[in-house]
Design a protein around this nucleic acid. Structure first.
Length: 287
DNA sequence: AAGAGGCCCTGATAGC
DNA sequence: TGCTATCAGGGCCTCT
């Protein structure tokens, strides 16, 4: 589900809903995510007040008072849902409104607030939570990761120098979070199409112009995807169940067999596997 | 050190 | 219809 734009959409709606709120209770139904949820997780978060929700790359960062943080990674299939609390009914306990978007299975974690609850769902369990207890550790956590595409550090010098001597294909580097953080399998293909670069091209063979195109198109495409509410393939929705719209803009991702969208190009979009991931490109205009 | 490949897991869909 | 095989938006690990 989530690359940087989708995580950003989740961040924005989550921030609006729970900033300045206190976590009343945490319920874990399945601790076996990508990493095991530690036994102190619930008690650590209980009564903590949320200052804000930020994001680095594909990680959500919940900020609490006193430099405490909780990272959330959605893996491949993680989603976050909000349920609003219903006013107390006569003769019944207070409960939550039903959401038609909330799956029945795999709701592994629940964060209860005064008038709503946040539910973490993740069928494949590649996602995870992580507690971080001071600002220094937070910095350390992302130290080995490359800059985000939007960062000034993701510039021509950085990219061109990084690619010197790199004998691997460019597509793999776009997916390599040590090089650049936040690009995933959809946007990697889209960025290379926009840059007219053959995904199998060795990184060291990219000239400065091509590097610059990759940089500019990374910024442009991710920003556009955020503006469109992310990509809803399979079932990505924001926390209230709204779909994104960027999937309508895919030029190559899952477009194999169709004609190249570029004016005057007579090529066909093809799918090939690069480091175990599907890769889509035009056989004619990407060199 | 860099690169290739495998693995974690469930569910949807394609193909027979 | 019903089975099986393949593939899915990520990231970590090991081996060479």
């Amino acid at each position: 589900m989530p690359e940087l734009p989708e995580v950003e959409i989740v961040r924005q709606s989550l921030h609006k809903k729970i900033k300045k709120k206190c976590i009343q209770k945490v319920i874990i139904r399945n601790r076996n995510l990508r990493f095991k949820i530690p036994s102190y997780f619930e008690s650590f978060l209980k009564d903590k007040k949320i200052i804000k929700i930020s994001r680095f790359s594909k990680y959500l960062i919940i900020h609490f008072q006193n430099e405490n943080y909780c990272l959330i990674h959605l893996g491949m299939s993680g989603t976050i849902h909000i349920l609003n609390k219903r006013k107390p009914q006569k003769f019944t306990n207070t409960s939550f409104y039903h959401s038609p978007f909330l799956p029945e299975k795999h709701n592994h974690a629940e964060f209860v607030f005064d008038n709503l609850k946040v539910i973490y769902n993740d069928p494949r369990r590649f996602g995870f939570f992580e507690i971080i207890k001071n600002h220094q550790d937070l910095k350390k956590r992302f130290k080995s990761m490359g800059p985000e595409p939007f960062s000034n550090k993701f510039n021509l010098n950085y990219v061109f120098n990084y690619f010197k001597n790199k004998n691997k294909d460019i597509k793999s580097f776009l997916l390599d979070q040590r090089f650049v953080s936040g690009i995933g399998n959809i946007y990697a293909s889209e960025i290379l199409f926009a840059s007219k670069i053959y995904p199998f091209k060795k990184a060291k063979r990219l000239n400065r112009d091509e590097c610059l195109n990759v940089i500019l198109n990374s910024k442009k495409i991710l920003q556009k995807a955020i503006n469109k509410g992310g990509s809803s393939i399979r079932d990505f929705k924001d926390i209230s169940g709204n779909k994104g719209n960027f999937q309508k803009e895919f030029k190559v991702y899952k477009q194999d067999g169709t004609d190249c969208r570029r004016a005057q190009c007579k090529g066909i979009i093809k799918k090939k596997i690069i480091s175990n991931r599907s890769t889509f490109f035009c056989i004619s205009c990407q060199k």
